[in-house]
Amino acid sequence: MRVDARRNRDRLVAAATAVIAEQGPAASLNEIAQQAGVGAGTLYRHFPTRESLLLEVFTTRIETLCARAHELAESRSPSDALTAWLEAFLQHCRTDRGLAETIMKAPSGSDLNCAVKLRTAGAGLVARAQEAGVVRAGVEVEDILQLTIGIALAADSPARAERLLSIAIVGLRG
């Protein structure tokens, strides 16, 4: 990528991060381009769809969640690792406007980078928890991710979200 193209892309991601944090995932793409100091055509050359821009904005957050999964797998029991990771995932979904909606729209089996990374990180934790007998057989990582996202979207407060997640975690043990 040329230096000026890379600079434009970086400015678009920075502007999108700020505007989406303020307005949510339905933020005006024209406003994002304007904030970045580029035209709409430049935005669409780098990000042909809204989803592609949202996924780029959330890549760093998703990579942090994945790194956290690996760290927890090495330092905690299977049950504690899965619980702590789901709590971190819930926090990210509640804090970063649009993250939950973006992930929710990624179809099951999607090859979108963020969805694949999250499924992979979560699958390792779920498998460990199932091997340890603390999560029932048949529960898939997709189930747990969708459940956590649903809680993030439905809860009216952080306390309610945490309470709902703890109830769901008890249900996973069945």
Rank of each mutant, 00 (worst) to 15 (best):
T17W: 00
Q34H: 10
A154P: 07
V38D: 04
H46N: 10
I151M: 03
A81E: 02
K105S: 14
Q130I: 05
E71S: 15
S110V: 03
L118K: 02
M1G: 15
P25G: 07
L172C: 13
T148V: 13
A88H: 09
R2W: 07
P48G: 04
S52M: 09
L12N: 01
R76A: 12
A69D: 03
A81G: 02
R45S: 07
D96N: 12
A123L: 13
A16T: 04
D10R: 08
A16H: 01
T60R: 15
L125C: 02
L43Q: 01
T59N: 10
T42H: 06
Q91K: 11
A18F: 07
E162L: 14
A121G: 13
T83Q: 14
R173M: 08
A168V: 07
E101I: 01
L147C: 13
R50Q: 06
Q130W: 05
T148I: 12
R173W: 06
R160P: 12
D156T: 11
E63Y: 08
A88V: 11
L165R: 04
A69M: 09
A40I: 09
A40Y: 10
L55Y: 00
E87W: 09
V3M: 11
V19G: 02
R61Y: 14
P48T: 05
G138E: 02
A81H: 04
N30K: 11
L55T: 00
A121I: 00
S77Q: 10
E31V: 14
A115S: 14
R9M: 04
I62V: 15
K117P: 08
A36Q: 01
S166T: 11
E140D: 10
R7L: 15
